[in-house]
Nucleic acid binder design. Sequence first.
DNA 1: ATTATATCCGAATAATTACTCGGGTTATGA
DNA 2: TCATAACCCGAGTAATTATTCGGATATAAT
Lengths: 214, 214
Amino acid sequence: MAKNTQVIDFSIRKQPVQQRSKALVAALLDATARLLVTIGYIAITTNKVAEKAGVGIGSLYEYFPNKESLVAALIERNSMEIVEKIQLGMEQALQKPHEEALRFWLEKMVDALDERRDEVRVVIFEVPFLRQMPLLETMPKTLMNVAFSAHQRANDRVQFTYPKAAVYHLTSMVSAAIINMVVHPPQHIPREILLDELAELILRAMEGGVKTTG
Amino acid sequence: MAKNTQVIDFSIRKQPVQQRSKALVAALLDATARLLVTIGYIAITTNKVAEKAGVGIGSLYEYFPNKESLVAALIERNSMEIVEKIQLGMEQALQKPHEEALRFWLEKMVDALDERRDEVRVVIFEVPFLRQMPLLETMPKTLMNVAFSAHQRANDRVQFTYPKAAVYHLTSMVSAAIINMVVHPPQHIPREILLDELAELILRAMEGGVKTTG
DNA sequence: ATTATATCCGAATAATTACTCGGGTTATGA
DNA sequence: TCATAACCCGAGTAATTATTCGGATATAAT
């Protein structure tokens, strides 16, 4: 009936094996990134990408079947780097005293996204098939589950009436706050203050749970 | 330099004055809405909209210069309805005892969005020029400022070290939580519980501020 | 009733974009 | 060094989509 779920072909056509072909694919992705931030997602065409990358249009089609697969491959490549930094940040945070851990982790996440600010902005606001990319759907959930568990262990007297609902909301709220800081930074409020306040808000939301007599 | 800010022509070409032309424009917007949820934003073309609406393609161009203006007009029309409901909900909430007000308002907002669930989902995830629509950018900020002020009045001993930063974060977090509930509702968690937990989380975040001796 | 104005239309054209295919070049390895 | 495989290419074609324009019809105004 509703043909809404337009299945998109993300697959790569051929894996580059020699160095030159790997370089060619990398050049294509770099060009895609540059075009994304300069002309936006809609205006991108395969021909423009090939031209910007300095390769023939035929070569592009050796490896990518369409524009979507090109952008998807770029997102995959770059979000890997970001995810690794965020996970490293969490591991470091878990070593720290509980009061500092959240603030520290938030800062690491913002830093990781800030390095690719423009790309993040365009990808989040303009790429229409983001929801179909498994990594970006599950990653925040996984991370928040780890963080929530750690927090519960460190505060074993704090209990939530509906922990699943709490995790569900905290996931969307924390993700949104961080992304918002990167793509819509407010005028006149220093970054340090934003991070302090965000950490406090979240901490209070989490620590206000019912306390059992321990 | 970077021609990123692709200016989009949202303007309507001609205001319909007779009834038949108003009906024609309405039919075009209805068709746009139906196509949005069935085939998605990218796949929409002016020709398809005209066909679905049962009007000639020429008539479409009498009133709309392009696909974007069509979708923008639809968003404008429908978000008006939603905004009115949300504002009404807030006015009602402000009459209620402070403990119930937030929970009540959250429910009204979720209800308002839920009535147009599919449209909201597509618009938020697929329409690439959303940020350029002034209403949708400023509305959450305005609303949250009102809510925050009301809360501060009702709790005049609670002070934030950085109120502006708090409002900034709360705006993005509350918006995200509500929209997420509508477009990504979790399995197995009843709506009432989700609303209860969300209200508690936000209330705790806001009430944990430094309390002055009143 | 007549003029003026608003509306409606869709075949035809322009413009854009996707994508192929055959042929040439470079690396590999036996 | 020769065969095979991997790679690169872009002119040309197919397919899609945007948009116009002149003429027909309907409503409003006098």
